[in-house]
Simulated scan of single mutants.
Amino acid sequence: MTTFDTNPAIASKGWNIGLWLAQVILAAMFIMAGTTKLMSGSAELVAMGMGWAENAPFLLIKFIGIAEVAGALGLILPAATRIMPDLTRLAAAGLCVVMVLAAGVHIFRGEFEVVPVNAVLFALAALVVWGRARKAPIAPRV
């Protein structure tokens, strides 16, 4: 057995670092995706390879962009400030829902090559939900 296996403080520190890494990666991905949807029109999104945007209502595209940006901010800000850190888990859970819905749209449209990206992002977000609940929760500021 290593020290990592027997010392809960070290194990928790390792989980905390890993979860922060997952949160930062997810936040970066969703900030980029969300701001792209917020700043671009349907035709621009289609030209970027987002074929689903061709027939999607304008407000739906903007709503998805807002949800992705809000989720990204929710992954970082509550945990970093320790103000209502449970919101980090909720933000990650919300992004899980977004990824399930996105995968459904891509499968429906026959865009199977995009689904693995949705699956990886879902898995990272689910890891954050589980990890912040069980392995390395963040205590609220007192």
Rank of each mutant, 00 (worst) to 15 (best):
T3C: 06
N7L: 03
I10Y: 09
I10A: 09
A11K: 15
S12R: 15
K13T: 11
W15A: 14
I17A: 14
W20E: 02
W20N: 04
A22D: 05
A22W: 06
L26A: 06
M29H: 12
F30W: 11
I31A: 12
M32Y: 12
A33L: 01
G34F: 00
T35K: 05
T35D: 01
T36W: 06
K37V: 04
M39L: 14
G41I: 01
A43I: 01
A43N: 12
A43F: 03
E44P: 02
L45C: 00
L45F: 04
V46R: 09
M48E: 10
M48G: 11
G49A: 01
G49F: 04
M50A: 12
M50D: 14
W52E: 15
A53C: 03
E54M: 09
E54W: 06
A56M: 15
L59G: 03
I61L: 13
I61N: 07
I64G: 03
A72R: 10
A72T: 09
L73H: 07
G74V: 05
G74C: 01
P78T: 02
A79L: 00
A80I: 03
A80K: 09
T81I: 04
R82V: 00
R82T: 07
M84C: 10
D86G: 11
L87R: 06
T88S: 13
A91F: 00
A92T: 01
A92R: 07
A92I: 02
G94W: 06
G94P: 00
G94F: 05
G94M: 01
G94N: 02
V97F: 10
V97G: 08
V100Q: 10
V100I: 15
A103I: 01
A103P: 13
V105D: 08
V105W: 08
H106I: 00
I107P: 08
I107Y: 14
I107S: 10
F108G: 15
F108T: 13
F112Y: 15
E113I: 13
V117G: 14
V117K: 13
A119W: 05
A119P: 10
L121F: 11
L121R: 10
F122Y: 05
A123H: 09
L124W: 05
L124I: 09
A125L: 07
A126N: 08
V128A: 06
V129G: 04
W130I: 13
G131Q: 09
R132Y: 01
A133R: 14
A133S: 13
P137H: 08
A139P: 12
P140N: 02
R141I: 04
V142D: 14
